[in-house]
């Protein structure tokens, strides 16, 4: 495998509520020889709240990171689907609209016209590293895992900027999980929204979306849901039954990151630490695998 090197944009969740996503990303990339050099002094992309309320802000916050990436020259790697979307949409608008690029440059104080590629790790693993390269590294097959791949929104839409092979029925994550030995269960909710941006403000709406996803995963015969987005995972793990003082999980189906699945299959020693961080405990399921 040719050595790969990226400027890495970690994103806020990966050192906060989704630390296990960040840690497993670093671990699998190291094991595969993918060099990640963290973008110096990176800042938040602004996420949904940015583009929903202030257009120039929504492009300028990623613009600061794009300017820093431009100075380094390498392609950029992102793992959070939301960061990925904001970086790619902003890059496209900056490069296609010179008037906007000028405004962003004034706001940021540096040239934001980053022309390198912005990649999601799933895309790099499936299409650059390749499943043929990954398969021989599986030391612990994930047979027994019945997974439904959950792509969510921002990894697939809008298709003009995203990376998956199909916008209505993507299969990248399906094929990735199958290569690790998991049984991939078919379902129709791969790209249905979990309501992430409403998680705190309209928990009632989110509860309905989240429970529907779990019910459909159960119907599909799944014993786990695999994601590529820290917003989806947080929402699925925390919003099944919101309440004031109690906390319960009516559908105890673990929700795991694709990087954790790879790390587990490759026998990486840190995997145990990642799984401890999950609100829906995956240990009963993982014990069955052995």
């Amino acid at each position: 495998m040719a050595t790969m090197s990226f400027t890495y944009y970690p994103g806020c969740s990966q050192s906060g509520s989704a630390e296990e996503f960040g840690d497993s990303t670093l671990a699998v990339c190291e094991a595969l020889g993918i060099e990640l050099l963290e973008l110096p002094d990176w800042s938040c992309c602004g996420a949904s709240s940015g583009h929903m309320t202030n257009d120039l802000l929504s492009v300028s916050l990623p613009g600061r990171d794009l300017a820093a990436a431009r100075a380094l020259g390498r392609d950029m790697l992102v793992v959070c689907a939301a960061c990925y979307s904001r970086m790619k949409v902003s890059q496209r608008r900056i490069l296609e609209d010179e008037e906007l690029a000028g405004k962003v440059e004034d706001a940021v104080g540096a040239d934001p016209r980053f022309t390198g590629r912005i990649r999601h790790l799933l895309d790099v693993l499936v299409n650059d590293v390749g499943l043929a390269e990954i398969k021989p590294r599986v030391v612990r097959s994930l047979g027994g895992l019945k997974a439904v791949p959950y792509y969510g929104c921002l990894l697939v839409r809008p298709p003009e900027v995203c990376c998956c092979d199909s916008v209505e029925n993507p299969t990248d994550l399906d094929r990735f999980l199958a290569a690790l030995g998991a049984e991939v269960r078919p379902w129709s909710f791969k790209t249905d929204c979990c309501g992430g941006s409403l998680s705190l403000s309209r928990t009632d709406v989110v509860e309905r979306l989240v429970n529907r996803l779990f019910e459909r995963a159960e119907e599909a015969g799944a014993n786990c849901i695999v994601t590529a987005c820290p917003m989806c995972t947080a929402n699925l793990e925390m919003r099944q039954k919101p309440s004031k003082f109690g906390f319960s999980i009516p559908h105890p189906i673990p929700v795991l990151y694709f990087t954790e699945m790879l790390g587990l299959a490759m026998g990486l020693p840190d995997a145990e630490e990642w799984f401890k961080a999950h609100i829906i405990d995956p240990h009963p399921l993982l014990k069955e695998l052995v």
């Binding site: 949904s48 929104c153 916008v167 409403l198």
Partner: peptide, 11 residues
């Protein structure tokens, strides 16, 4: 405000 920006409609 309820629009979650999932972009299904746009697609």
């Amino acid at each position: 405000w309820l629009c979650a920006s999932c972009e299904t409609c746009s697609t």
